[in-house]
Design a protein around this nucleic acid. Structure first.
Lengths: 252, 252
DNA sequence: AAGTGGTCTAGACCACCCA
DNA sequence: GGGTGGTCTAGACCACTTC
């Protein structure tokens, strides 16, 4: 080992580390503009691509966001809180409000896009709903927007045989939402299972949620069960992870 | 506009799209090796950095993984299932299977690293535990490993005043976990709250969990409450999102 | 030893944002 | 119009894996 030895670190990492430390120290607060590519080239004596790579590190860590022609800025977060358990308490959807309208704090979620279709069930959906593959399912898609920014994509699947002719198959379900209508059909959901994952978004998801680089999505797959364990709905949700905190309360 | 016109797309995106489509079509299965930088340069007539950028897109989407000196490979996933509410898990609601059926279980989690310390409480911890800032807390850190791969970092915080002298303050707690010992102290947890988020990992987290690029972490902050709503433990967990599916079961 | 991905340079042109 | 980030080139050397 020579005198110079030690842990060799790439230049772009050193630059990224310095910027990250400065951000953590509060030198650049939320929304602040970072030194640009030209600044970094001059300050550290590196080529353009190296300065870019340094900024790319922070971007893919999700702590920084670039705006074309404007600069690189520190991101800020103010997540919504989603209550997994109480939000589905019977009182709430019995009273004629949609479950989502129970959402949260002083900011309001708005449904932005709605689509309803009848399709043959994909295999994994058929398995969960306990129906034959290619049996028809009612597919309801919605996008939710918070203060102009899309934050949630939701797709519900219901066995078409159960909901044929009901308001569930129409774009505007009227008051109460899906669960109130299932109740009217004698299919009141009494149990729920939610499975939560996280991954980086597909291109399509990133586009539909206007996600900036370095922002993962959370996936919630919720299955609603009526009496006797009969699955009546599968709801696949894609959430902007920068906009949500999920909360689950339960007893030992 | 010339004959070539149309929607202008960057070359690296076109290349990335082609590779992604090939992977989705099953042309490259899990673990398969993709065309390397040199292949892409030749096949598409682009410079090295452009080929690299294309592969970088897939890497930060988490669907591909590069191994230095070896190549770029399609990633494969086999997540563990973590049951948030154990008492309700099982066959009771088993009429419909879960979406990620097949896989899992029978693989064992092993604790890899343990550390115990007494420290002044950070402000956010003090607030949750309902103690004064800088009151002493017992901090227990653990890392869990699944088949050689670290998948979970957990840090527990308990008010030092409650657990002083008990086995909880020792590295080896002996038989039974923390909750059994809390029970012996008359502080049996009867209620839990879990808050779930997701984001890209810090450098430190990525290193301790051996995460490859494009892999977010899930964060679970669990608070345990004893009788009368008294908070007795806060457990902050950092999970490799590629290794976990969280499941929550609850009644309406 | 040959091939791979990782780092880095010194240029270039473009589209976009803001003053 | 001047500055910004986004794309792209044609080279180079290195550390690493694989054989």
């Amino acid at each position: 080992m020579t005198t110079s030895g030690g842990t060799r670190q790439p230049k772009y990492q050193r630059i990224a580390d310095a910027l990250r430390a400065a951000i953590r120290a509060g030198e650049y607060g939320p929304g602040a503009r970072l030194p640009g590519e030209n600044d970094l080239m001059a300050a550290h004596g590196v080529a353009r691509m190296t300065a870019r790579q340094a900024l790319g590190v922070l971007q893919s860590e999700g702590i920084v966001e670039s705006r074309k022609g404007a600069g690189v800025f520190v991101r800020s977060f103010r997540p919504l809180r989603r209550h997994g358990v109480q939000r589905l308490a019977g009182e709430r959807w019995g009273a004629g409000r949609s479950v989502w309208s129970a959402d949260i704090e002083d900011r309001t979620l708005v449904v932005d896009q709605v689509g309803v279709a009848e399709e043959p069930a994909q295999e994994r959906i058929a398995r969960v709903l306990d129906i034959a593959p290619d049996d028809a399912v009612c597919v309801r898609h919605r996008r939710y927007v918070l203060e102009g920014k899309p934050v949630l994509l939701a797709t519900s699947f219901l066995p078409a045989a159960l909901v044929a002719g009901s308001a569930i198959t129409r774009e505007d379900t009227g008051p109460g939402g899906i669960y109130a209508h299932l109740d009217e059909l004698g299919l009141k959901p009494v149990h729920f299972r939610e499975e939560v994952r996280s991954r980086m978004p597909s291109q399509d998801e990133a586009h539909r949620l206007s996600l900036s680089a370095g922002t993962p999505v959370m996936l919630i797959c919720r299955t609603a069960f009526a009496a006797e364990g009969r699955p009546v709905e599968v709801n696949e949700m894609v959430l902007d992870s920068a906009s949500y905190v999920l909360e689950y309360d339960f007893d030992a």
